[in-house]
Amino acid sequence: MPGSDTDAPSAVKILVSGGFGVGKTTLVRSISEIAPLRTEEVLTASGADVDDLCGIEEKTTTTVALDFGRITLFPDLVLYLFGTPGQQRFWFMWDDLALGALGGIVLVDTRRIDVSFSAIDFFEKRGIPFIVAANCFDGRQAYTAGQVRQALALGPDIQLHAFDARDRVSCRDTLRTLVDHLVERVSRTP
């Protein structure tokens, strides 16, 4: 890489995804060493799925914002956590976001499981390994792990983890569960 500097740390990233209001930003805020920052990108998509009777090719441009945080793991390695925007469909086209991600965490609120379906689709289509983390909103889970698995149609190889997004240690353990899963996955397929 041009102008590369050996003193500067290099970075890795993990995506935190899920529907609107499932606790993505709460997780980032709990564990980040900085106050969560917000950045935005301009995405352009041809409106192929738009019903247009005029037959005019129309381009849709939209702004997508995401919140992210930082964890310095070692002086030479920094982990960034990106919370993907939940309610918009356009971030699926944000290549830079998916490229080079170690893995993903799909957050689900067991009372509204459907809002996280699209996040699971995204990781599966992009081939990004992920785990599912169920956020305990009232300090307890209303459903059993088996019920959540069935509702999300999760395969046996996808881990389901219960946690509390407001608790730093719980968030750290969720990240460790993901990275353990990633290490195991890579060592299993040489």
Partner: peptide
């Protein structure tokens, strides 16, 4: 500019263990 630790070559076991 310093490139991300994980390049386009896919997952790297040493890097994951370090994380």
């Amino acid at each position: 500019a310093t490139a991300p630790a994980q390049g386009s070559g896919g997952p790297d076991i040493a890097l994951l263990e370090k994380v």
